[in-house]
Design a protein around this nucleic acid. Structure first.
Lengths: 219, 219
DNA sequence: TGGTATATGACACAACTTTGACACAAGTAT
DNA sequence: ATACTTGTGTCAAAGTTGTGTCATATACCA
C-alpha cells in the first residue's frame, strides 16, 4: 500500500517526536526538519504529500517557507500556539490549508491531515487491514496477495469496518452506512453478512461482536 | 476545560430552545441560527466544532447549507422528521455524519454528538480512573493493562461514575443517565449493577455509597 | 443506649434479549 | 437456463438484566 509522506517542520524536538510517532503509527511516512533551511533542502530532493509547518522557526521562518512551498502545490497545515490568533489568520491568508493549535491531541492531527488530503484528492484509494487490501476504485480485494471475490454488500461492509477499525459501531449505524436506508432492526440481514465476511476471510478473530451494540474490527 | 461549540440551525423556536438548554447543560457552548442564511453568516465569522442542521429551513434549506459546510470539515448532524425516510437517506448520502429524528429524547442528542465528535478526533475518547481506562469508541476496558469484559450497562455506568468522580450522584440522576428512562426507585436494579462493578473491578473501596443519596466514585 | 424504620449489600434465578448457524426462496445478472 | 447474490425466518446457544429475598448496615428517635 502506498504510504502518504509527511514533512514535519518543527524546531521543538519534543513536539516533533510526538508528531513523528503518532503519525507513523497511523501509517504515514514521516520526515522531520528542525528549521526552514533544512526543510527547503529536503523539499528539493524528496516529494511530500503534506507539510506540517511550525511558524516560529530559526533561520527561515514559517511564513517565508510557505512562500517557497506555495508553487509546489503541497498542502500545508500550520502549527501555532493557542494564543497567537494573529498567526493563525495570517497563515490562512497566506494559503495554508488548515492550522492546528499547540498543544494538540494526537487524534486531532490525524483527522485534520486526512481531511486536507481528501480535499486535495490525494488520499489513498486503498484500505488495508491485517492481510487484506481493498482497492476502492477497482473494487478488487486481495488477501495475502491473492485476489478474493467479494459481493457488493460484502465489499461495502468490509470497507466500512476497516475505515472504522477499533471502533465499536452500532448495528444501526453500520447498516445505514452500507445499505443507505433506515435500520429496522428485526431481521438477520446485517448479522448474516457479518458471518459471511468472517467465514470468507477467516476473520473470526478480527471481527468482534460487541454485545448489544454492534461489531468492531479489532487488531 | 475547552468547551465544544455547537451551531444549532433550526427555525422552530421551541425545538431550538430545547436543544440550546439541553446542550448548554451538558457543557456545550451553543449558538442558534433560525435560517440558512444566518447560519452561513455565522459560519463565516465564528468557528464551530459541530453543526445540528434542520433540513426544512426558510431561505436556504439544509441540503444547500450542507454543500456550503462540506469544505469546512465540520461534522454535521441532521435533524429530520421521523417520517421522512427520504430525507434521512439523502442526508447520509450527502455526507452528513449522523441524523436524529424529531421528536427526540434529550439524552439521545448528547450521545450522538459525543459519538460524532469522538469520531472526528475532537473529543477525548478515553476515561481513566485508578487502574482502569475506558476507551469510549472501541468500548474496551483495561485494568492494569489487561482487558476486562464489561456489559453495556456496566460500561455506561462506569463511564458516568468516572466522568463525575468525587461527586456524590443521586441514584435517580445516575439511573436516568445510564438507563435513559425515569427512575421508579423501588427496585434493586441500580444497586445490583453497582455491586457488579465493585466486584468485577475489585473497587469496593473506590465506589462509595452515600447513604440516602446515591454513590460516589472516590479517590 | 437501644429500638425501629429504612436503605443497601449479597446473591440466586428466571425472563428476556441478542447473536450464530443455516437453509431456503426471491431476485439479478450472465 | 444457470449461477450468483441477497434478504429473511427458524432454531439453538450464549449472554444480559431485572427482581425478589434475606441479611446487614445506617440514621434517627425516644
Amino acid at each position: 500500500m502506498y504510504m502518504q509522506r509527511i514533512l514535519i517542520v518543527e524546531d521543538d524536538e519534543a513536539i516533533a517526536n510526538l508528531l513523528y510517532m503518532d503519525l507513523s503509527d497511523e501509517g504515514f511516512l514521516c520526515s522531520c526538519a528542525s528549521d526552514g533551511k533544512i526543510a527547503a533542502d529536503m523539499l528539493e530532493n524528496e516529494s511530500f504529500d503534506l507539510i506540517l509547518l511550525d511558524i516560529m522557526l530559526p533561520e527561515i521562518d514559517g511564513y517565508e517557507l510557505l512562500e517557497y512551498i506555495k508553487p509546489m502545490d503541497i498542502p500545508v497545515i500550520f502549527l501555532t500556539a493557542k494564543s497567537s490568533v494573529k498567526d493563525r489568520i495570517q497563515g490562512l491568508k497566506m494559503g495554508a490549508d488548515d492550522y492546528i493549535t499547540k498543544p494538540f491531541q494526537s487524534g486531532e492531527v490525524t483527522a485534520r491531515i486526512e481531511a486536507v488530503l481528501r480535499r486535495y484528492g490525494r488520499k489513498s484509494n486503498e484500505l488495508s487491514f491485517a492481510d487484506v487490501t481493498l482497492h476502492l476504485e477497482s473494487r478488487k480485494v486481495y488477501q495475502g496477495g491473492k485476489e478474493m471475490e467479494l459481493t457488493v454488500k460484502e465489499f461495502d461492509l468490509l470497507a466500512e469496518l476497516i475505515q472504522n477499525k477499533n471502533v465499536a459501531q452500532y448495528r444501526s449505524r453500520l447498516y445505514e452506512k452500507v445499505w443507505k436506508e433506515p435500520f429496522a432492526g428485526d431481521t438477520r440481514t446485517l448479522d448474516t453478512h457479518i458471518q459471511r465476511l468472517r467465514k470468507k476471510l477467516g476473520w473470526e478473530d478480527y471481527i468482534k461482536t460487541v454485545f448489544r451494540i454492534g461489531y468492531r474490527l479489532e487488531g
